[in-house]
Simulated scan of single mutants.
Amino acid sequence: MTKISLGGKTVHTLGNLPEKGTEAPDVELVDSRLGRRHISDFRGQKVLMNIFPSVNTGVCSNSVRKFNEEAAALSNTKVLCISKDLPFSQDQFCAAEGIENVVMLSDYRDGRFGVAYNLTMTDGGFEALLSRSVIVLDENGKVIYTEQVPEIGQEPNYTAALEALQNA
């Protein structure tokens, strides 16, 4: 188990994020049209996974906006925004915000993504949701950068994630 916090209170996740240099687990998620997408569908491109509890919170929506502007502009790069929100909510958020440069994916069906990446919260007010994390993959699906934000209310280190993408 990994310890993070929510409002200063300790929360646990299933474990540690995948190690750098390892192959990213190939998990199925649900897209905005209720289609099935796998992490491996994005091989051949650099991938930034922006993972968060819910797009309906301020910090989570800020991260989607920021990565929509910054990372999505990079060549041969896909930004995957992943939460357990229903695809309908994700789609409505993107439509209302004019966000077009990210791929919204949901882990609502079976939670396998959160389990495979060890980032499902196991207690606290957000129990069963995904912890705020960023994982960057190279074109071959290898992990080159990870960050599990220690306090859920904090934003991820955008600069470090974007540098990892640019240096991949």
Rank of each mutant, 00 (worst) to 15 (best):
L29G: 01
M49Y: 02
V103K: 03
H38P: 04
F88C: 00
A164S: 12
V47G: 01
G98V: 10
A95G: 00
L165R: 03
V102H: 09
V102W: 12
D91K: 13
G98N: 11
A71T: 05
G114S: 00
N101A: 10
A168G: 08
A95K: 13
E19V: 11
G124Y: 11
L119V: 00
D31R: 09
E23H: 10
Q166P: 15
I99S: 01
G111Y: 13
T146H: 14
F126W: 15
Q148Y: 05
P156N: 02
G125F: 11
T122H: 02
V27N: 02
V102L: 09
G125H: 05
P53S: 04
L34Q: 09
Y108M: 11
A161Y: 13
E151S: 13
L74R: 00
T13I: 05
V149N: 07
P87Q: 02
N76F: 12
D26I: 11
Q45G: 01
K46G: 00
L165I: 02
N56W: 09
E19S: 05
L6Y: 15
L14V: 01
N62F: 15
V103M: 09
M104L: 05
D41E: 13
E28G: 03
V27D: 04
M121D: 09
Y158S: 07
K66F: 14
V136I: 12
D41L: 05
N140V: 01
V55S: 05
I144C: 01
S40F: 13
L119R: 00
P18H: 11
S54G: 10
C94W: 10
N50K: 02
E23T: 14
G98T: 12
Q45I: 02
E100L: 05
M49G: 03
D41V: 06
Y158V: 05
N118F: 11
V136R: 13
G111T: 01
A128H: 04
N68H: 14
E23M: 14
I82H: 10
G111L: 09
V149W: 12
N50C: 04
P18G: 00
G8Q: 11
A164K: 07
V47Q: 06
Y158Q: 08
A24E: 15
N167A: 10
F42A: 00
E127F: 13
A160T: 04
G8M: 07
V59M: 12
Q154N: 12
S83K: 11
P25L: 06
A161P: 08
G44W: 15
H38Y: 15
C81T: 12
V47E: 04
T77H: 03
K84Q: 06
I144V: 06
T146R: 12
E100G: 11
V134Q: 06
S133D: 11
G98F: 15
G125T: 11
K142L: 13
D138N: 10
G58E: 10
F88N: 00
V136M: 05
K9E: 13
L129Q: 04
K142Y: 10
L14H: 00
G21C: 06
C94H: 14
T13W: 14
P53Q: 07
T159F: 12
R43Y: 15
A73C: 01
T146G: 08
Y108V: 01
H12W: 14
L130I: 04
L137P: 02
F93I: 00
S83V: 08
A96H: 13
I4T: 02
Y158H: 10
P156I: 05
A95Q: 07
